[in-house]
Structure formats: structure tokens, C-alpha cells
Design a protein around this nucleic acid. Sequence first.
DNA 1: CGGACCACTATTTTCGAAAATAATAGCGGT
DNA 2: ACCGCTATTATTTTCGAAAATAGTGGTCCG
Lengths: 237, 237
Amino acid sequence: MGRTMPDNAIRPRKEFGKTIAADITHRLREEIVTCGLAPGEPLRFDVLRERFGASFTTLREALTALAAEGLVDAQEQRGFRVAPVSRQDLVEVTDARVLIEVELMRRAIQKGDDDWEIAVISTLHRLKRIEQRDPEHPLRDPEWKIAHRQFHQALVSACGSATLLAIRAELFDRAERYRHLSANFRPRPRDKAGEHQAIMQAAISRNADLAVQLIETHIRSTADNVAKYAGHLLETE
Amino acid sequence: MGRTMPDNAIRPRKEFGKTIAADITHRLREEIVTCGLAPGEPLRFDVLRERFGASFTTLREALTALAAEGLVDAQEQRGFRVAPVSRQDLVEVTDARVLIEVELMRRAIQKGDDDWEIAVISTLHRLKRIEQRDPEHPLRDPEWKIAHRQFHQALVSACGSATLLAIRAELFDRAERYRHLSANFRPRPRDKAGEHQAIMQAAISRNADLAVQLIETHIRSTADNVAKYAGHLLETE
DNA sequence: CGGACCACTATTTTCGAAAATAATAGCGGT
DNA sequence: ACCGCTATTATTTTCGAAAATAGTGGTCCG
């Protein structure tokens, strides 16, 4: 314990054992992915300092990390901005996701053990529960978002490659930003529940070809929806 | 120009227009990839400060960026260290490289135009020239290293996806570190020149299946060599 | 009127000191 | 002697001031 820490520290500024920088990275990523910070928006230090209550250098560290993930655009000597969106980027991200996720799905189906099956089933169960509660605007519900992420994560978790899982996670975040972008304009959510159910069944029954085909359709149709309902937001460079 | 900058600034501390942090990131990456900094070695700020002549926060920013690339391991509240190596990691990196590079090779062969062909041919030409000069220890020669990287980069450059190219580049660096690890123990370089020539020819003649097969063999045999001649260095962690 | 140059302002980038945390050594009780 | 605890030291992490750089507007000359 530090020798000068006062006993009356009101509340922890951050999670125990984590650095402030890591915490800010987390929060900033969340804001960017959910479009709380709009694509292309400049990230000025004064503003961030006010919003996150951290100093220049700490913020800078967080921004650098997010730049490496492709969520932030670092313009040397001219600061940072939220990574811009574009049709081209959406296509690239979708394409890369299909390539990697399809491969990981195959590997997970081949390698997955009992724990994997349980994880897939239980994460889907939770997702469905949340959807029953509020079937209108799932993307607005932070709980749905987390459950949705966890279901897709569980599906491929047994693939055996931490390296590829990390890459997949980055691409997932970048794609999620596009989903949020179109969420306000999409008239009604399509039948995601049914798709998830079908993917789960194909995976558990070890039908790799079917599971892979469903996943690919799932990813591509999501991207198509974004292009359709948020196309007007994709023209700016 | 800053109002207090003295006229007698001896030499630029860094390349024009780039931040010091970006410069340090570059130099640190180089040192790690070439194993000038050994895998697992702790990266203490005093030492780095001395070696690179930058301050805490600037170094921290560079380390954070490299952590996102997988070359540095950040242990919260306990500093940074060079990412450790392991048999498992080597397998994962090799696997991921094959998956991605094979796909990019196909796309490049399908999309590549005249400029692409010229880039492939000319980068291979330079590579061969350098090999003629000093056929013994190519990995020791920084020029060979650059030319080798540029040839492989040129091969896939026409794939059309900046996203996948960035991922590929990261994996290339991580693999190159393993090559350096085994360079000191490998008795003689195998016939890389011939392999490169064959890959080039298959690519230029648009024989995708052959090119892809050669690339995969090329990547896997490199990894096998590392495991064979540097296996004793992979047991830690 | 236009456009190069300069002074001034806004903003980012870097630095080293200070705070927080982890690692280590020394001490006292059982 | 050995374990647990506290004081000390080593190291990382954070901060805000200061330096460097980019941006802006105004002025002077052709």
C-alpha cells in the first residue's frame, strides 16, 4: 500500500488492478462503437479531458491503442479523430469477417467439447430471454448487445487460436459500429432470433457446412442492411 | 516555427512531420523483431529512456501501440516486456498467416494489373541481386530483409483490402521474429531463391492454385525450420 | 485586388516531477 | 528458525506545465 494514500478515498476511480489508461481505452472504445462519438469527429484533448477526467498523456495512450485497432485515426501532429466510415471500409470489414469467422466456425465445430456446447446453448438462451423482454430495439439495449457479442464469441471460442480470436474481436467491433450507425434508420429488426437459433443448431449438431453457410449469410445480410438504411452516411470520406 | 526554438539545433531528432512517439514505435518494433531485445525480456523505463532518449510517457505510448500488435506484453501495474515466444504461438501465427496470405494471393492474382506485375518482378529482381552479393547469411543483411519483405508485400498488394493487408503485415512481423530467433542456429539457408522465383512465375502467369500452394509450403517450411533449429528456445512460458 | 509574409492563437506533443503501486528487506513474535 | 507484518526501496503510472507545431488573420507590397 502506498505510503501517502489517504484512508478517506471516496470511491475507486477505476477497476482494481487496472491502469486508468486501460480503463479509458475501454470506455472510449465503447463510445466509438456505439457512435456516441460520431465517425470522423475530431477528438480534441480539452474535450476528452473534460469528458473522461484524465490527463493528456493518459488519453494519448488510450487513443494510440484504439488507433492500432482501427477505431481511431491518428493524424500525426494534427491530433486524432474517430475513424471515418465509408462504403469501401464496410465492404472490407465484412469481407474479412466472413473469411475469418467461417474458418473459426469450422475449427470450433471440429474441436468443441462439452463446455463449448454448453457455452453456445446458454449464451443463446440468455440472448433470447432479453429479446422477449424488449423485442423492439435490441441495439439500444446494452444488455442485448453484450449477450449478442457473447453468443457469437462462444460459437468460435473453441477454435484453438487466440491469435485469430483477437483479430476476429477487432473486426467484430468495427462491424458493430456500422450496425449502430444504421440502427436509427432501420425500420424494423429482421428475424435475427431465428437466424441465431439456426446457427446454434447447426453448430451443435456438428453440421459444419450448414453452420458456415448460415454465418456467412448472417454477416453479409447485416452489412447489406447497413448499406441500405445508412447508405447516406457512408459517402463522406 | 516555434517561437523559442534555438537556431543551433544540431540535427533533427526524428523524421520530419512525424511524432517522436511514432519514431520510437518504429525503432522498438525493429529491435524486437530482430531479437535485439530478447523474447520475455522486461522493458524497464530507465533502460529504454537511456537507449532511446525519450521520456516516460512517450515510451509508454510506443509500448502500448506495440502491445496492440502483439509484439509487447503489457502487464498492468507491472510494466511491459517483450512478448514471449512459444511453440503454440508459432503454430498460431503460421496458421493465421497461411489462412490470410493464401486468400490475398488469390485475390491479387485475380485483380492484379500491369503495375502489380511490374512491382512483383522488380522486387524479386532486387532481392536476387542482394542474394548474389552475400549468399551466406541473408537474415543478417538489413537490405535483404527489407527487399524480402517488399517482395512478399508486392505479391499480395493488389488484393484490394487495406484491412486484410494490415493484418497480414502484423502477422508477418511476428513471424519474422521467429525467423531471427532461429537464424543463429540454422546451419545453412535452404533454397529460398528458387522458391521465390517459382512463386513469382506462378503469380505472373495467373496460376492461382499453384501460387497458393507454393506460398503455403513456403510459409510452413519456414516455420518448421524454426521449430527444428530453435526448438530449445521455445520451451519457456 | 491578390498573395506572400509575419505575428498571434489554438492545439498537440513532450518532458520531468510527483503520486501510486509493486517488490524487497528487516524485524519481532511464536 | 519460520511465518507474518511493516518500513523501505524500486518501478510504474499519472499529472500539469512547458515546448513544438499547426492554424488563422491581418498587413504590406506588387
